[in-house]
Simulated scan of single mutants.
Amino acid sequence: MENELTWAWLEGYPSLDFANTVIRRGWTEYELVSSVDDLASWLGAAALPAPRPAEVTAEDLEAFLRLRDPALRLLRAAAGQGSRLEADVQTLNETLLGCPEVMVLGDEPGSVVSCAVGSPDAFTLLLARLAGAVRDVLAGPRSDLAFCDAPGCGQLFFQRRTNQAWCGPACGNRARVARHHTTSG
């Protein structure tokens, strides 16, 4: 029986949840968002930085993947897995510039809210905010972004300890079992 691929929410960070829509089974990577239905399912389950669009189209799926792939490469590069490509930076920046936002005063004293300039459609705003979440990870002060290299994972995560090598206990167990099989076999 084939393993069913499911959404993995490791961090609660939209940027990492966005990038982690590519996973591994064994050492093979799988695309989790390959149809409009997959995208709608992910949008329905994800903690999003903007309201979920009422429905999504094939064009939305293409736009999602056009942003996700460079975001994934940039985040992996920041975690020491690959190179930072200027074309990926340009794609992220173009998405941000295509839907600029300004901070305005909120309803409560001392609060601010982000408002899009103009009237972008819901999916364009969502992509811009996902790009902003990726930008914030890449430009922020955190240095604990890591890549889980356990067999069957390949997820990005934030380390909770300086020597943390895997995203969670299950991946640590899989990696130790795999290491044991290669050294004792």
Rank of each mutant, 00 (worst) to 15 (best):
L74E: 01
G12P: 07
T21D: 13
D37H: 12
P53E: 08
V22N: 14
A46L: 08
G26R: 13
L96K: 05
S111M: 07
G26S: 12
A47C: 07
V102N: 08
L67F: 06
E86W: 12
P14H: 13
P14R: 11
D88L: 09
R84L: 05
L48P: 03
L43C: 02
G12A: 07
L97D: 09
A46S: 14
L72R: 13
S111Y: 05
S111P: 10
A87Y: 00
E11M: 12
G98K: 08
T91S: 01
P14C: 08
D60T: 00
A58F: 00
R76Q: 05
T6E: 14
A63N: 09
S34C: 15
D107T: 10
L72E: 06
L75N: 00
V22K: 14
E11Q: 13
L72Y: 12
W7N: 14
R68I: 09
T21R: 09
P51M: 09
V104I: 09
E101I: 01
V113I: 13
G26E: 13
E55Y: 06
L72Q: 04
E62F: 06
T95C: 12
A63W: 03
G106S: 04
Q81K: 10
P70I: 00
E108K: 10
S34R: 15
G98P: 05
D17T: 13
G44L: 10
A46M: 00
P109M: 13
C115T: 15
L96C: 07
R25K: 14
L61F: 04
V113D: 10
A45D: 10
E59H: 04
D38C: 11
G98W: 04
V36Y: 05
R68S: 01
A45K: 14
A58K: 07
T57F: 10
L16Q: 04
L48E: 04
P109L: 04
F64P: 02
E62P: 06
Q90A: 13
V22F: 15
Q90W: 11
E11S: 15
T6I: 15
N93F: 08
L43M: 03
L67Y: 06
L105V: 11
V117F: 11
L105W: 14
R24Q: 15
T21K: 08
R84P: 01
A46I: 03
A50E: 04
V89I: 10
D38V: 10
C115N: 13
P100S: 08
P14V: 12
N93T: 11
G12R: 09
Q81F: 07
V112P: 02
R73M: 13
F18G: 14
P14Q: 08
